[in-house]
Write a protein that binds this DNA or RNA. Structure first.
Lengths: 343, 343
DNA sequence: AGATTATATTTACGCGCGTAAAAAATAGAT
DNA sequence: ATCTATTTTTTACGCGCGTAAATATAATCT
């Protein structure tokens, strides 16, 4: 293979017998040259070790082939999974994804967008914090670069939004819980960062009233991203004090549910839908760990792959047509009920 | 603030009244210019919206300020945590980290190094798969760019290695388990990807013999990164068939232990060190979820932050002195016993 | 004040590649 | 074989910045 190290395109033109402008065309789009010359170039590439200098290439392009991918928190397996799907979609489409985590801090989200500016990305896929995000920042960034939001919506920001249909999914699990036992109360954080949390609460309230049951919402104190810890401490307190009116708890997300299960275990409360069980707990998201909780967690599976791919391809389409869409589309994917042992 | 958008350094030189070469010096190192001119430049920066073009800058630098960070699998919270620590250390030192996950595939690890080549990073922090990694690939990459390995060692590869002292940590937990109940058997994967797994098994064998107990190793079939699943299915099988000679199981890592706990729960085996408990389970790593398992997992805490920071600073030192170290240093950090409820 | 040293400016070239325009070569069709 | 459409080559310039050398200016010291 790589016999000689080639310094630049000029040199590669010399050894391959192809003119430099043609090589330049080839590297931008191999299909833009004649089949026979493409073959000659590709053959030369097996003989000589050369690849275009990324920095020189991007300096002269009006837009790079980079796509920024900004996630709220990579330490959350939910986001690392969806981030991976997005990454794969970008690579498959010939783009270079640049993955940035905001580490749970809206301030870092701003910083990430700021540093992306310097990289002149063709587009950005952003899973924002939601209302904690700096809307103006996203909008001003979006003026310069096409942005597609996913997972969490910031109304009106970005060219499009792709996410989960919380109303459908919450209704699905509420319906199941009502049908199979006592109607659920709802357990969530008091001041959730994520707009999905608000949608889920509203979906719960609406669904309960539609089914003719009285809704009960319990809100846990606590800030930040330690959902499991909050679920455990606050959930444990509520359990101990007997504050739940029903034996069925629907948690706003799986991570809270994991904490709740941990609390129930400590209190020797048997969770599940079988005989001898005193409590049912359900979650939302089908977190990678939810199948290994004790008992395994009944939850709603979001279609990670579908959301990630739709978001990516929505962006690709904008980049291909080089035109911002006139209307801001919102695409919601339905969740699926995953019945396990906890409810 | 940003009144006018400045196109390039030439233009910024015009509006700020500072010559372009001086500006260039400033952006490379603000301390390299006189205090008074630095103030003038920084004041001008508040008036005009300008920042150097990354691509043009990096084209002309022999080495960039980028540091590649390659992790085996970002979906594993262990790595996302340690990755974050490394990222922060890089930023604090004025470098730009570029985070790449190999998604559990050694092939992707090669691809990541390959794509890093094009980015001309100043250095790379690599958490390799270990023996599954392509040693020659790492070595040839290391010829061009300084590489510091962390977490998993590939003997002789890279300028240095920073990781956990498995012999110390395994001995610590074996000693505790022996002292507080029946001596443990060891549960691991049959063909582990990670060299730490082998070290831990050997450490277990050595420690057991030192304490005068007979060692028992159980190896689970199964490939890939679904450790919890493997721990559950194989662990469940062994439990059901009564194959463990002792009531104490030391798992090679927390993720296997999480699966084992899940299996025990399904089989109605009470885990813990209290009365009425039939099984003790311990892990290794202090996985972020290990405090929320049922029961919470007794394990060994690795000092993520210390390992990450030492790895980063070892690299920084090499970059500062611009000299590869003559001897390959291996730094090991001790683990701490985290006593929870499972053992 | 003058001498010395540190710092800034002027001038100019190079990095590796994109890209435009005109000329030359090739492929496909008649 | 000739014509035409397509592709490649030749030539040349520009991108934004690093950087070197010579010169000019400012700061520090005696």
């Amino acid at each position: 293979m790589s016999q000689r190290k080639i310094k630049n395109m000029e040199e590669f033109a010399a050894v391959s017998g192809i003119s430099r402008p043609t090589l330049s065309k080839f590297f931008n789009d191999p299909d833009s040259v004649r089949r026979s010359t493409r073959d000659r170039i590709e053959h030369a590439l097996t003989q000589f070790d050369y690849r275009p200098n990324v920095y020189a290439v991007n300096q002269n392009r009006r837009t790079t082939k980079n796509i920024g991918v900004v996630l709220p928190n990579l330490a959350d397996p939910f986001f690392s999974e969806i981030g991976r799907e997005v990454e794969l979609a970008c690579i498959a489409a010939g783009y270079s994804p640049i993955l940035l985590s905001s580490h749970g801090s809206p301030q870092q989200e701003r910083a990430n967008l700021e540093s992306l500016r310097a990289l002149k990305p063709a587009g950005v896929l952003l899973a924002p914090f939601g209302k904690a995000s700096d809307r103006k920042d996203i909008e001003s960034f979006n003026d310069a670069v096409p942005v597609v939001l996913f997972d969490a919506n910031v109304e009106g920001a970005g060219e499009a939004f792709v996410g989960a249909d919380n109303f459908q999914s919450v209704d699905l699990i509420v319906e199941y819980l009502c049908r199979s036992g006592q109607p659920p109360c709802f357990f969530e954080m008091k001041s959730p960062l994520n707009p999905n949390a608000n949608k889920r609460r509203n979906a719960y309230l609406e669904s309960m009233s539609r089914h003719g049951f009285e809704a009960q919402v319990h809100q846990a104190e606590g800030e930040g991203w330690h959902f499991e810890e909050i679920g455990r401490s606050e959930g444990g307190r509520l359990l101990k004090e007997g504050r739940f009116e029903t034996d069925t708890i629907l948690c706003s997300n799986d991570r809270l549910a994991i904490g709740m299960l941990s609390a129930a275990y400590s209190l020797d409360i048997r969770v599940g839908h079988g005989d001898g069980c005193a409590l049912r707990v359900a979650g939302h998201d089908d977190h990678p760990f939810s199948r290994f909780t004790c008992p395994s967690l009944t939850t709603i599976a979001q279609d990670y792959a579908a959301i990630a791919n739709r978001a990516a391809h929505t962006l690709f389409k904008i980049l291909d047509t080089e035109a911002r869409p006139s209307t801001r589309e919102e695409t919601l994917f339905e969740g699926k009920l995953v019945m396990r042992d906890s409810a």
